[in-house]
Design a protein around this nucleic acid. Structure first.
Length: 426
RNA sequence: GGAGUGAUGGCCGAGUUGGUCGAAGGCGCUCGCCUGCUAAGCGAGUAUACGCCCAAAAGGCGUAUCGACGGUUCGAAUCCGUCUCACUCCGCCA
């Protein structure tokens, strides 16, 4: 959520920001109109309440002295009626302002490259050597099926399409990656490990910005105000919701493993094979709560933290800076890490690292005090995938495959796997 | 799931015959005084949000907030209703 006071003060800046993001700048004018109505009504009730408070004191005093106060009481009867009506109006107008405010996207940071779509995203850095094969590299789903480590067909029987079941060393690989990533971020990067519930309530989802606008991208529990989390970002960012932190707690760095559930509405026909786009996948997510002045530095270090996993696994990747047209609603700036998938001859998103500035912090009431007695200020929040595990499995299978269909295990993962190769069952 | 108890400020805790209660008192914290040092003692201060005034800050004014929502009333922390949460006991359960 944007700062309504900042919008009142300089609406053009926000209209321009929305235009850059290819959002409708008219949203700002709708908001300002509603805001004006709300404040006019608010001023009126507050004046009446002030009158009533004074009269109440007067009545109390008179009664204490045994004097008659029925004149005042009768007058206030009407005033109270009027207040009741106006209060109702104020509530509705305020709700309208809130609704509009919650629906307005964040505006991009000045450094974000302009662009229409993902076509215009800017690769900023490449790492690693793409593997050379003396044979035609096979896609990860073929490898996985041949190795009998992922069962695509039976998973559909058990649940439905876009669900998978890991089996044998596939299941172990999934578990090994989770452990490896968590240990790595905790030990090398100083994150605190968190294991959240996979269900979150509506307040939390509003806090991170998934509601009210993106409810159809999630699975909702029938008859309950609960959703399956689309990412551990939700519980982690909401961990300190409605709290005021002290400066010495910052930066807060959390690493959480969870399953992530996405309805993938509107993605029919895309990535229907393999491990790339599923209704459930597992991920280690990094969340940071930081001071406003440090958030862009923290974004760079977040990208490095996530990239370090790819480097440790020796998977080639590139960093892409997301352009204004491809930026999500909540973000001011975002980098994607894309891993090399040789069988598809393409880079594929495996992590997404974003700065939200105070957009989520305002929604979730995440604040801090610089020192004892100082005014509370909103934090900046960031998050990044470190990494999406299913896509990491896909990347390992494709990059580490050998001609006989076996797959080597990256060195860093061998202690977690207890072996250095996955072979075809005999 | 059944029964009971409770929810007040950073914390503890008064306040339930409705009336200057944003809320006593204590603790904590901040600043100052005092004091060989520390402790103790003394004094002052110590919530949040929103609106208005002010170019802005400082500051001032107003409104709201005693779990949430709604009701009664001129007036509610105090009365009534609904809900939520926490705790205890019983049942069930990995």
């Amino acid at each position: 959520m944007l700062d309504i006071r900042a919008i009142r003060q300089d609406p053009d800046r926000f209209r321009a920001g929305l235009t850059r993001k290819h959002a409708d700048p008219q949203l700002i004018d709708d908001l300002l109109a509603a805001d004006e109505q709300w404040r006019a009504a608010l001023t009126e009730t507050e004046q009446l309440k002030s009158l009533r408070n004074k009269a109440s004191e007067e009545i109390a005093r008179k009664k204490k002295q045994g004097l008659d106060a029925s004149d005042e009481i009768n007058q206030m009867r009407d005033v109270s009626q009027r207040i009741k009506m106006l209060d109702d109006e104020v509530r509705q107008l305020e709700a309208r302002v809130q609704e509009l405010l919650l629906a307005i996207p964040n505006i991009p940071h000045a450094s974000v490259p302009d662009g229409e779509s993902e076509e215009d995203n800017v690769p900023v850095r490449h790492w690693g050597e793409k593997p050379q094969f003396a044979f035609e590299p096979r896609p990860h789903w073929e490898l996985a099926e041949a190795l009998d480590i992922v069962d695509f067909e039976r998973a559909v029987k058990i649940t439905g399409s876009r669900f998978v079941l890991y089996k044998g060393l596939g299941a172990k690989l999934e578990r090994a990656l989770a452990n490896f990533m968590l240990d790595f971020h905790v030990q090398r990067h100083g994150y605190t490990e968190m294991f959240p519930a996979f269900i979150a309530n509506e307040e939390s989802l509003v806090g991170t910005g998934n509601l009210p606008k993106f409810g159809d991208e999630m699975f909702k529990l029938e008859g309950l105000p609960y959703y399956l989390i689309p990412t551990a970002e939700v519980p982690l960012t909401n961990y300190y919701r409605e709290e005021i932190l002290t400066a010495d707690m910052l930066p807060v760095k959390l690493a959480g493993y969870s399953a992530c559930f996405r309805s993938e509405a509107g993605s029919a026909g895309k990535d229907t094979r393999g491990l790339i786009r599923l209704h459930q996948f597992q991920k280690v997510e990094l969340v940071k709560l930081v001071t406003p002045e440090s958030s862009y530095e923290e974004l760079e270090s977040l990208v490095r933290d996530c990239a370090a996993i790819l480097e440790a696994l020796e998977l080639p990747y590139r960093v892409v800076e997301i352009c204004t047209g491809d930026l999500g609603a909540k973000e001011t700036k975002k980098y994607d890490l894309e891993v090399w998938l040789p069988a598809q001859n393409t880079y594929r998103e495996i992590s997404s690292c974003s700065n939200f500035e105070d957009y989520q912090a305002r929604r979730a009431g995440l604040r801090f005090r610089r020192e004892e007695g100082a005014k509370p200020e909103y934090l900046h929040t960031l998050n990044g995938s470190g990494l999406a595990i299913g896509r990491t499995v896909a990347a390992i299978l494709e990059n580490y495959q050998q001609e006989d269909g076996s797959v080597r295990i990256p060195k860093a993962l061998v202690p977690y796997m207890g072996g250095d190769v996955i072979r075809r069952p005999s």
